[in-house]
Design a protein around this nucleic acid. Structure first.
Length: 143
DNA sequence: GCCAACGTTGGC
DNA sequence: GCCAACGTTGGC
């Protein structure tokens, strides 16, 4: 079980849309490092949903609902996608500013490589962020 | 809107 | 295989 962070520009695909849709495919990744992270995702892994550009904050948690499969929106055929399912919102979104100022979080891949759209999250980072966001731990899956 | 960081492309 | 030019991302 691993943890991730996925970035989306809310004017393109927002958390509200994700919640309304439930399960949606996460396509459009065109960067090898991000794509490698997408490939490493397993069913049931959890990921933070981050709003880039507008908001710049973590707004919710999604679960990987389908593992890596071809992204037919990629004409080169090199990149794939996963499906993600809205799991729960952050009662209190956590901003990029807070993350940068937090001793445990300031070295996250999100900060070190600001252009990486899909990045890994350590268990410690996950716990700290859930606590900051007002999310109760541990998270349980539906049986 | 600007620009720094950085990934990609293509000529050599 | 190098590297200059170029394009994109994303914070500010």
């Amino acid at each position: 079980m691993r943890y991730w962070l996925m970035k989306s520009e809310p004017n393109c695909w927002s958390w509200a849309q994700q919640v309304q849709k439930g399960v949606e495919s996460w396509d459009g990744v065109r960067n090898y490092q991000a794509a490698n992270n997408v490939k490493a995702m397993r069913l049931g892994d959890l990921a933070f949903f981050y709003h880039s550009n507008i908001g710049k904050e973590i707004v919710g948690i999604v679960e990987i609902a389908r593992e890596y499969y071809p992204d037919e929106t990629d004409s080169s055929g090199r990149f794939g996608r996963v499906d993600v399912k809205a799991l729960q919102p952050f009662p209190r979104p956590v901003s990029l500013k807070e993350i940068k100022e937090h001793p445990v979080l300031k070295d996250m891949a999100l900060i070190r490589q600001s252009r990486l759209s899909v990045s890994p999250v350590s268990e410690e980072e996950w716990r700290v962020l859930c606590a900051l966001g007002g999310v109760a731990l541990p998270l349980f899956h539906d049986p």
